[in-house]
Design a protein around this nucleic acid. Structure first.
Lengths: 224, 224
DNA sequence: GAGGGATTTGACCAAATGGTCAAGATGCAA
DNA sequence: TTGCATCTTGACCATTTGGTCAAATCCCTC
């Protein structure tokens, strides 16, 4: 049989995936993230992804039926991780705590998964051909929910009045900027988030600016 | 003769460009901006750029010797406009005035030239293969100069202490976000900067947040 | 250790695409 | 109007690249 759609005796162990399948899919997705984030969808080649994953192009196409399929899978793979932090905003927490934690998480993700950030940015900038439904569906629900949380904080007098979505956009913009434009940042400052000192400085600056911006005092994590 | 490098009797009028040359180059650059910003360098095709510019691919290649040449020219064409606003930061002005004017200008550019913003973002995210020298040269000098201006404002007690580069990055990030991620913003809010009301709201929100963030009061341009 | 499905690959194909070229059309100065 | 340079294009080419296929090879179960 060709292809692994009909998985014969597949009552295997894990979600119908053999050990080999699991390993290879993972290798492919890792390689694909690198390629797609570096070159964009069109610029990436199946051949290079396969090479990076240590297998032949044919074999890669045995696991994913097309370049677009790899791309979609890669996107799906990073998306949940990427949107996770926002979900942790806790309505019962203190705004300064919650928001600074959120900002820190986002900057950590920019430091740890800059490729995911760039892939996501790329997809959205091209018009979000693959993930528009997710943006309009799941993400919109999430943002609406968290906007209401912020609105409640404002109503309760816990923070200054801001348009909640703009606050969210500002946090996204600033934190992701350090991943997406890291080349520019490196060109200008000589450093990027992979430098621990610069990382600390960035968290401090961004947090201070945004929290001050909404009339809050940033909590001290680590004394200087 | 083939190609227009040796321009024979070219003491024409304007910089050695005939009327036809000027018109066509301009048509090409406009079309190229659209294509490159929508599809990225690899995704763009010379054929489509030519079609958009209303001429044959061959003719386009008569004006620009290669796809890369078109790309470079497009980039150069937008770059000066793109970096211009920062140059207007006036050391002798009041920080709140100067910065809010800068922020407004940047958001105006995001509204008016979102494609330029996306093209620039794309280029940088791919590692700035073409413009790295400019980032490390001209842009770095400019940023250093303006960082010093901000530093002076701080020293003079005119604004709160911030790391100047991070303030600049924050302004870039937030303002360009509204162009680069306009699809996402539209998916989430139903609007983008082309909506005058949303434009006003964005300027107000971003300006307020950032100026508050550095201990300044945003000046009122238009009463409510 | 034999049988059979899962995995892997090289050979191959068709379409897309950047770029060349020679010939023809056009604009302009004298 | 004529002559020449500029401008324009269709035909064509080489390369890249996504994807197919049949033939191995591997792995696991019985």
């Amino acid at each position: 049989m060709t292809g692994l759609s009909g998985q014969g005796s597949e009552a295997h162990k894990n979600g119908g995936l053999s050990r080999i399948q699991e390993r290879n899919r993972s290798l492919i997705l890792d390689a694909a993230l690198g390629e797609f984030s570096k070159k964009g969808f069109s610029g990436a080649t199946v051949e290079r992804i396969a090479a990076e994953a240590g297998m032949s192009k044919s074999n890669l196409l045995y696991y994913f039926s097309s370049k677009e399929a790899i791309y979609k899978a890669t996107l799906a793979h990073i998306l949940e991780v990427w949107l996770a932090p926002l979900k942790t905003l806790d309505p019962s927490g203190a705004p300064s705590q919650e928001l600074s934690a959120y900002i820190r998480q986002k900057i950590e993700m920019s430091a740890e998964f800059p490729e995911a950030s760039r892939l996501f940015a790329n997809e959205v900038m091209q018009g979000a051909p693959q993930i528009l439904p997710i943006l309009e569906g799941e993400l919109k629900r999430l943002v609406t929910e968290k906007s209401a949380v912020i609105e409640d904080w404002i109503t309760a007098g816990k923070m200054q009045r801001v348009e909640p979505v703009h606050l969210i956009f500002t946090i996204w913009a600033t934190t992701q900027h350090y991943a997406d434009f890291s080349i520019q940042i490196k060109a200008l400052t000589g450093k990027d988030l992979s430098d621990p000192e610069f990382f600390r400085e960035t968290v401090a600056s961004v947090t201070a600016l945004i929290l001050n911006g909404i009339g809050l005092t940033p909590p001290q994590d680590t004394p200087a």
